[in-house]
Amino acid sequence: MPTLYPIQDTFVRGEISPRLHARASLDLYRAALSRCENFVTLPHGGIRKRGGSYFCAEVKDSSKKTRGIPFIFSADQAYMLEFGDLYIRVHAYGARVGSVEVVTPYLEADLFDLQFVQSADQMWITHKNYLPQVLTRTAHTTWTLAEFVFLDGPYDDINTSATTLTPAESGAVHPQMTSDTLPTGTAAATAGTAWHVFDRDNGTNLTSGVTTAFVSYDFAGASTKVCDAYWIRVNSTGGTKAPVAWDFQGF
C-alpha cells in the first residue's frame, strides 16, 4: 500500500504531545506538528525559523553564575537584567545600559530561586530567605532596588501611655447598696447585715450564725428584672461556716 503524504498548510496548533500522534480524527491533529524544533509557529498558519543569538557583552564575572531576567515595558522599551552575585546590571539594544549597576542582597547560590513579577516600570522580586524587594526604573539609566513596604492599614499610632479604664457600672441587676434600704429597694436576711451581700465589696460579708438562713433583695415594685448569672463568695475572715447548698428564687 503506498504511503500518503497529505499537504498541510497550517501549523497553528504547534507541537503536540506524543499521546496524540495517532489521533487523526481530531481537528487539531491536521494543524499540528509532532516535532517543531528551531521554528516558531505563526498565528496565521505558517512557520518561520527561530531567531538566533549573538554575543552582546561579557558578564561582570564569568567565573560565577548569572541569570538573565527580562524587563519589558513596551515593544520599544525592553531590557535584559543581568542578575549576578550581589548585583544587577542592565542591558538593552544589544549593549549594556551605561554604567548602571544596582546592589542587591542576592547571593550567587540564590539567583535561580528568585521569583519575580513586573508591572509597568516596577518589578517585585521575592525569595524565601530575603525580604521582598521592588526594582524601579525611573529613567533609562536610573534604576533602584528597595525593600517593598506592605500597605496594611491605615492604623493609628500605637498608644503606649498608661491608661486606666473604670467602668461606669458593673452590670449587676441590683444597685450598689449602702444600707438595707439605700439607695433603692430593701435587703433582708435571717440575721446579720443583709446589705453587705449587695454592696459589691469583696471585703465585706454577711455572717448569720445559723445553719439554715436566707438573704433577699426586694426591688420595691420595679418592673421585671433579668438576672442571667450570680456568684457567691466566701470571706475567709467570716468564720468557719460556708454555704454548701442553696436555692436561687425570684418572685
Rank of each mutant, 00 (worst) to 15 (best):
P2R: 13
Y5G: 01
Y5N: 03
Y5H: 10
I7D: 05
Q8M: 07
T10Y: 05
T10E: 08
F11S: 03
G14V: 06
G14F: 08
P18I: 04
R19C: 04
R19G: 06
L20N: 13
R23G: 02
S25E: 15
S25M: 05
S25Y: 14
R30Y: 03
L33C: 09
S34N: 12
R35T: 11
C36K: 10
E37P: 00
E37A: 09
N38W: 11
L42W: 10
P43S: 09
P43H: 05
H44K: 11
G46I: 03
R50P: 00
G51F: 03
G52T: 08
S53E: 14
F55D: 02
C56N: 04
A57I: 13
V59L: 10
K60W: 12
S63E: 15
S63V: 10
S63P: 00
K64E: 15
T66S: 08
R67H: 09
R67Q: 05
G68I: 12
G68Y: 11
I69P: 01
P70E: 03
I72Y: 12
S74V: 02
A75V: 00
A75N: 08
Y79M: 02
E82A: 01
G84I: 01
G84L: 04
D85W: 05
R89H: 05
R89C: 02
R89V: 03
H91K: 00
G98M: 10
V103R: 00
V103N: 03
T104L: 08
L107F: 05
L107I: 04
E108T: 04
L111S: 04
D113V: 02
L114S: 00
Q115I: 01
F116N: 06
S119Y: 05
S119G: 02
S119A: 12
A120F: 13
D121R: 08
Q122F: 09
M123I: 12
W124L: 11
I125V: 07
T126W: 06
N129R: 02
Y130Q: 01
L131H: 13
P132R: 12
R137L: 03
T142Q: 15
T142I: 05
W143G: 01
T144N: 14
L145C: 06
A146V: 10
E147H: 08
E147R: 14
F148S: 12
F148P: 00
F150G: 11
L151G: 04
P154C: 09
D156W: 14
N159V: 15
N159F: 15
L165P: 01
G171T: 06
A172W: 07
Q176C: 10
T178H: 02
S179I: 03
T181G: 00
L182T: 08
A188C: 09
A188F: 02
A188D: 14
T193A: 04
A194K: 01
F198V: 00
D199K: 07
D201T: 08
N202C: 15
T204K: 03
T204H: 08
T204Y: 14
L206T: 11
T207I: 05
S208F: 11
V210W: 12
F214A: 08
S216N: 13
A220E: 09
A222Q: 15
D228P: 00
R233Y: 15
R233D: 08
V234Y: 15
N235D: 07
G238T: 07
G238A: 10
P243G: 03
V244I: 10
V244S: 14
V244D: 14
A245E: 12
A245Y: 14
D247T: 10
Q249D: 06
F251M: 09
F251A: 11
